[in-house]
Design a protein around this nucleic acid. Structure first.
Length: 540
RNA sequence: GGCGCAUUCGUCUAGCGGCCUAGGACGCAUCCCUCUCAAGGAUGAGACCACGGGUUCGAAUCCCGUAUGCGCUACCA
């Protein structure tokens, strides 16, 4: 039976208890401060412990990034643990959503579900015996107690307290309940919860590595439920037990946990366990003009959404890590390698940061324009081209002979696009048949003198492109030189722009387009001539 | 209501007592480059370091109040 082996472990922990006690956070009146373990010298073990309730929120993922980077920076391990202790909130795809998000960002975990590890299982619902035995042990130790109160009574207590302007919270009735009352409650078929017995007096102090040392009066902390009546633990118990047995050295989590951190410190102490270091990362706020935490009401908040919007994982990563962390006063671009080398939790800032999409756009454009290779870029464009209906899903999965054309088409806009999603919008005209292009004939004129002048430019362009050898046709500089020559010496135009405008519109159907020479080459001679001819006709 | 955390250009931030008449980046403006749109280059506007008291020879940097913002206050995480 698993319980007995667990209890052996607990016993072993109790033996360690005495020598550990001196080194950890104090409570119950003592003014000693927490001694934070030296985190630089030894490899860290960190974890990302989400609850499978849907696509991970970006603020949540950022703490995963911090945890991952810190583990890797110190040469340690990053674990994934699924905290599915609330059956009501589960999503069917929750676990997969989490894995997808981490995978997309290349946040690979060393231990976790599927992958296994020395402390498996890494799913809390598969570790119920452990939590139950420890909660029971705490009751026996006198650091926790059974609570027989019904949800209705709890609710009534809260309402009553609020009515007289008191802080809501449990009144600790079952701490002192009589045996007969207990028996009565049990007889009525009620399953008790287990609550942690918070010391009534004194203070608890602990040090967060990001926020300052924090002290609270024990009297302000609730006797939190640690084991629910359905036999599942609450977060408060489960994460402590798991972090302990999984030998987590640094608990990196969102700042919304700060208020309950003292409770966690007291539970560690009650268990006699050595504490990990705490790092409470700042929350991410709504963009300027909106109040509150980054919310999905008006913003994209999940990793998958940003993926769908055409952002690169490199850019999102770079952006997110800079929200609340900085390396120095000027470095702005960080590759994963840079981050692993340079990341330091000591430089995480405690101040909440507003989410500024402009900066993300800038970083995304930077990665697309200057970091990605053409092949890599085009490959990443495939799903977006398919989504937009420019190529088929089959072609996206396996471009085959189409690849060269797709690649060339994408290359045309690589330097001007901010997101992957813009690509099909910018180049769809290359994929449509030229005959399907619709645009006002007057667009062809531009700054030329009139329809006749524009038609003449098209005429000359057609003649030139028709007659040059293949080698010249595929040489953008040669084409540009050829067209320039015609513009200057044959048509005597005021500037080269007048020469290049009509073909631009004829080929793309737009007044804003990629590089003309690029379009000429990518479309190929036959298609190019057909489009130019169509343009010329429309001016007649 | 109670408890907690935070507070430097519109935004992200550098700054950890004298290098600050506060540096960088995004965005914005102007100019240059230019085949359109971008990109790129240059320049500029933009912060009395939330406010008020201290401590100090000296404070954005330390302390205390106030204000504001944010978080927590569940048999959710």
């Amino acid at each position: 039976m698993i319980i007995s082996s667990v209890e052996l472990i607990i016993l072993a922990q109790h033996v360690r208890r005495l020598d550990v006690l001196d080194r950890q956070a104090t409570s119950t009146g003592s003014e000693k401060e927490t001694i934070v373990t030296d985190n630089i010298t030894k490899p860290a073990r960190t974890r990302y412990a989400p609850s499978p309730t849907g696509n991970p929120h970006i603020g949540n993922i950022r703490t995963a990034i911090f945890a991952y980077l810190w583990a890797k920076h110190t040469g340690g391990q990053f674990l994934l643990r699924i905290e599915d202790t609330d059956k009501k909130r589960q999503t069917e795809t929750g676990v997969q959503d989490i894995k997808n998000s981490l995978g997309w960002l290349s946040l690979d975990w060393d231990e976790g579900p599927d992958k296994g590890g020395p402390f498996a299982p890494y799913v809390q619902s598969e570790r119920l015996d452990l939590y139950q035995s420890i909660a029971k042990k705490m009751v026996e130790d006198g650091t926790a107690y059974y609570c027989y109160c019904t949800p209705e009574r709890l609710d009534a207590v809260n309402k009553a307290k609020q009515a007289i302007k008191q802080a809501p919270g449990y009144d600790r009735r079952c701490r002192t309940i009589s045996e007969t009352e207990k028996e009565a409650a049990l007889a009525s078929g009620l399953t008790p919860t287990i609550r942690f017995k918070v010391p009534l007096e004194g203070k608890t102090t602990f040090t967060d590595l990001v926020v300052k040392p924090l002290t609270v009066e024990n009297s302000t902390i609730q006797d939190a439920v640690i084991l629910k009546s359905d036999g599942f633990p609450t977060y408060h118990l489960a994460h402590i037990v798991d972090d302990h047995f999984m030998e987590i050295s640094h608990v990196i989590r969102g700042q919304e946990w700060l208020p309950s951190a003292p409770l966690h410190v007291m539970i560690y102490q009650a268990l006699g366990w050595e504490m990990p270091a705490f790092i409470h990362a700042p929350v991410i706020l709504n963009p300027p003009g909106q109040k509150g935490k980054l919310s999905k009401r008006d913003n994209a908040v999940s990793v998958s959404q940003y993926s769908e919007l055409g952002y690169l994982p490199e850019a999102l990563m770079n952006f997110l890590v800079l929200l609340g962390w900085s390396y120095d006063d000027h470095t702005e671009f960080f590759s994963m390698e840079d981050l692993i080398k340079d990341f330091d939790i000591a430089r995480i800032q405690p101040t909440p940061a507003k989410f500024n999409i402009d900066k993300l756009d800038f970083l995304n454009a930077h990665y697309i324009n200057h970091v990605l290779t053409v092949d890599d870029f085009a490959r990443r464009c495939l799903p977006f081209l398919a989504e937009y209906g420019v190529i088929s899903p089959e072609e996206a999965a396996n471009p085959g002979a189409r690849w060269e054309f797709i690649r060339a088409a994408c290359a045309l806009v690589k330097d001007k696009v901010k997101t992957l999603a813009e690509v099909p919008v910018e180049i769809d005209f290359l994929f449509k048949p030229g005959a399907a292009l619709e645009y006002p004939a007057t667009d062809l004129i531009g700054k030329n003198e009139g329809p006749a002048a524009a038609a003449q430019v098209l005429e000359e362009t057609i003649n030139y492109l028709r007659d040059i050898p293949d080698e010249t046709y595929n040489d953008r500089d040669a084409i540009l030189a050829g067209l320039t020559e015609i513009s200057e010496n044959k048509l005597h135009l005021k500037n080269r722009g007048l020469m290049l405008w009509p073909p631009r519109v004829a080929l793309s159907g737009r007044t804003k387009s990629p590089d003309l020479m690029g379009m000429i080459i990518t479309l190929g001679r036959a298609e190019t001539l057909a489009r130019l001819e169509k343009g010329k006709q429309s001016l007649a």
